Measured scan of single mutants.
Amino acid sequence: SKICLVCGDEASGCHYGVVTCGSCKVFFKRAVEGQHNYLCAGRNDCIIDKIRRKNCPACRLQKCLQAGMNLGARKS
């Protein structure tokens, strides 16, 4: 099975251009559409994995963007 390129959980498919799990898919959509201005309490290098993905939305969003997630991406 495929793994989420953001948190490493089991992926549910290709979302916004990137193979991700459902949790990261929903997080990314809400983060971008809600125009959240997340700030990292650390050094913008928090570990984002299945267990810690909820700890720092700033670093999670950064990881989504680095993976290439794009709200305008067509479903493939």
Rank of each mutant, 00 (worst) to 15 (best):
R53V: 14
G13M: 11
K29E: 06
H36D: 13
V18H: 02
G17M: 09
Y38H: 09
K25T: 06
M69L: 08
G22P: 09
L65R: 09
R74M: 12
H36N: 13
C46F: 01
Y38K: 11
C46D: 01
Q35F: 05
C14H: 13
V19P: 13
I48R: 05
I51G: 12
H15K: 14
I51W: 04
A58H: 06
F28H: 02
A67N: 07
T20P: 01
I47F: 12
I3N: 12
S1W: 05
S76Y: 08
V19E: 15
K63C: 05
H15N: 07
S23T: 04
Q62P: 00
G34L: 05
V26W: 13
Y38S: 10
C7M: 00
G17Y: 05
G22M: 11
S76N: 08
T20E: 02
L39M: 14
G13V: 07
N44A: 12
G42M: 15
H36V: 13
N44R: 13
K29S: 10
D9A: 15
N55H: 10
S12D: 03
C7T: 00
L61I: 04
C14T: 07
Y38V: 14
M69I: 02
C24W: 00
D9E: 07
C59D: 02
S76K: 01
D45P: 05
L65I: 05
C21T: 00
E33A: 03
Y16N: 05
P57N: 12
L39Y: 09
K2M: 08
G22F: 03
G8C: 03
R74H: 07
T20S: 12
C40L: 01
N37Q: 12
C24R: 00
G42K: 10
A67Y: 03
S1A: 05
A58Y: 07
S1E: 14
C64G: 12
A41T: 10
G34E: 12
F27S: 02
I48P: 05
L65T: 11
G68C: 03
Q66L: 06
I3R: 03
C56Y: 02
S12M: 15
K75R: 09
H36I: 12
A58C: 15
C7R: 00
Q62D: 07
R30P: 15
C7H: 01
G68I: 03
S23N: 15
L39T: 08
C59S: 01
G72F: 05
V32F: 12
C14M: 14
Y16C: 09
L5V: 04
R74A: 14
Q35G: 11
G42H: 13
I48V: 11
C21P: 00
K63W: 04
I3Q: 04
V19H: 07
K63S: 06
H15R: 05
D49G: 06
V19W: 09
N70V: 12
C46I: 01
F28A: 03
G22W: 07
H36P: 12
Y16E: 12
S1L: 06
A41D: 15
V26A: 10
N70E: 11
K75M: 11
Y38W: 10
V18Y: 03
I3F: 10
N44K: 14
S23D: 14
S23Q: 12
V6C: 03
N70Y: 13
M69G: 03
K29C: 05
E33H: 08
N70M: 10
R53F: 09
V6Q: 01
D49F: 03
T20M: 04
I47T: 14
K63I: 06
F28T: 02
V26H: 11
C4R: 01
G34N: 15
V26C: 06
L39E: 10
R74F: 07
I48C: 03
G22Y: 03
K29A: 14
R74G: 12
Q35S: 11
I48Q: 12
K29V: 07
S12G: 04
P57R: 06
S12L: 15
F28M: 06
G34F: 15
K63R: 07
D9R: 04
K25G: 09
I51E: 10
D45K: 08
F27A: 02
V6K: 01
M69K: 03
G34V: 06
V18A: 05
F27E: 00
E33V: 12
V26N: 05
G17W: 04
G72A: 08
D49I: 03
V6L: 02
R43L: 09
F28W: 15
S23W: 04
H36M: 10
P57T: 07
G17N: 05
N55V: 12
C4W: 00
S12Q: 12
V26I: 14
N44E: 10
G68K: 03
R53G: 10
L71S: 02
K2G: 04
G8W: 03
S76T: 14
S76A: 07
C59L: 01
I47A: 11
C21M: 00
V32L: 09
H15P: 08
A41M: 15
G72W: 05
Q35W: 04
S1Y: 13
C46L: 01
I47C: 15
Q35P: 12
R30H: 15
V6Y: 02
G34Y: 13
K63A: 08
C7I: 01
Y38P: 10
R74D: 13
E10W: 12
G42T: 06
S12K: 05
G8S: 09
E33K: 15
G13N: 15
S76C: 05
K63V: 06
T20A: 08
K2E: 08
C64A: 11
G22Q: 04
G42N: 11
T20D: 02
V19F: 15
E33F: 05
I48K: 07
G17I: 03
F28D: 01
R74Y: 11
S23L: 06
N44Y: 10
K29N: 06
N70R: 12
N37I: 09
V19Y: 03
K25Q: 13
C24E: 00
G68D: 04
G8I: 02
R53A: 14
Y38R: 07
C59W: 00
V19Q: 12
E33Y: 07
P57E: 10
G68R: 04
V18Q: 05
L5I: 07
D45C: 13
C46P: 00
S12N: 15
N37K: 14
K54V: 08
D9L: 03
R52D: 08
I48D: 06
N37G: 09
V32R: 07
E33S: 13
N55Y: 04
M69F: 03
C4T: 01
A58G: 09
C14R: 09
C4P: 00
C46R: 01
Y38A: 11
C21E: 00
C24V: 00
S1M: 09
G34T: 09
G22A: 12
K2P: 05
I51M: 14
L39G: 10
F28Y: 07
A58L: 04
A58W: 06
Y16R: 08
Q66G: 10
C59A: 01
G8Q: 07
C24P: 00
K29F: 04
V6S: 02
V32P: 01
T20V: 14
R43D: 11
S12R: 13
V26P: 02
D45W: 03
K29R: 12
A31G: 13
G72Q: 15
E33C: 06
H36S: 14
A41I: 05
Q66Y: 07
P57G: 09
K2Y: 07
N55T: 14
Y38D: 10
G34Q: 10
Q66K: 11
P57K: 13
K50N: 03
H15S: 08
S76Q: 07
G42W: 05
C64W: 02
M69S: 02
G42C: 07
L65S: 12
G22N: 03
M69V: 03
V19R: 12
